[in-house]
């Protein structure tokens, strides 16, 4: 009961945008509970239709099949190529998990994007970082680092400049930008929604009622629709970039 009340809770303090107090032991707060909820949803979403797949699919199975097919083709096969089937264990659940975490932003009564807490995108980006380095070492051995840091066809004196630049851009900026992109997009959308809905209610209570409040309310409705698009797009881009990074460590540049 308490857990359920946390999921649909209305924040009483604007600082909850950035800091949510813990409700259960071990610092379990609303963010953690919503992460669990998204994990369960992802599991059910991928488990129920494929538990007993039918030749003539039910409606739900057809929908999930077409989404999985979309991830498999536009992300896996187009970016990674013939070896994409080996990495689908990562790409397909990642897409759906991130989508559920993002779509909580505009789900009625939840209204909170879990990915707007830096911990979740940061941990996922670190995981991707480990995966693409591991794949590189597995495919190319320790020459992976030489192949990555020294691009072919560069004159020797320039290497003093190139090696640090490549090191920073591949091993440091890649995970940071991956995490920051998702986090900043979601927190920006969440703050825009907060600002417009707060303005609407403030005008409704304080201002000249019927004249002023429809303007921010219209903006809020438009931004809500836009956030659906952003949720799908950010989940897609995170998965796409994961595929691109894995592809870049599969083959030596030449």
């Amino acid at each position: 009961m308490m857990v359920w009340a946390q999921i649909v809770e209305v924040p009483e303090d604007i600082n909850h945008l950035f800091d949510w107090p813990a409700v259960l032991p071990w610092g379990i707060n609303r963010v953690v509970l919503l992460t669990f909820l998204a994990t369960i949803l992802t599991f059910l979403f991928l488990y129920i239709p494929f538990r007993k797949p039918r030749i003539v699919p039910t409606k739900f199975q057809a929908m999930v099949e077409s989404l999985v097919e979309m991830v498999r083709n536009t992300i896996g096969k187009e970016v990674i190529g013939s070896e994409s089937a080996k990495y689908e264990w990562l790409l397909i659940p990642m897409f759906f998990w991130l989508f559920f975490l993002n779509i909580f932003e505009i789900t009625p009564f939840i209204n909170f994007p879990v990915t707007s807490r830096m911990a979740i995108p940061a941990f996922l980006a670190m995981f991707v970082w480990v995966v693409f380095i591991f794949v590189g070492i597995k495919k190319q051995g320790l020459k992976y680092f030489i192949n990555t840091l020294v691009p072919p066809g560069v004159p020797a004196p320039l290497l003093i400049l190139i090696i640090p630049i490549e090191f920073i851009s591949v091993f440091l900026i890649r995970p940071i930008s991956l995490a920051v992109r998702l986090f900043a997009n979601m927190i920006a959308g969440h703050m825009m929604l907060t600002v417009f809905f707060l303005t609407t209610s403030a005008y409704f209570v304080l201002g000249p009622k019927l004249i002023a409040f429809p303007v921010p309310f219209a903006f809020a409705v438009v931004i809500t629709a836009f956030e659906v698009f952003v949720s799908v797009l950010q989940a897609f881009i995170f998965t796409l970039l994961t595929a691109v990074y894995i592809e870049s460590s599969l083959h030596a540049e030449h």
Binding site: V79, V180, R181, A184, N185, F236, I237, L240
Partner: peptide
């Protein structure tokens, strides 16, 4: 068009990262 669209989103993602660093 399909392939171009995927590449376009990739390009947008790389370009947008700089603006988002500013937001951070």
């Amino acid at each position: 068009a399909g392939q171009v669209r995927t590449t376009m989103f990739l390009g947008i993602a790389f370009t947008e990262a700089l603006a988002l660093f500013g937001l951070l």
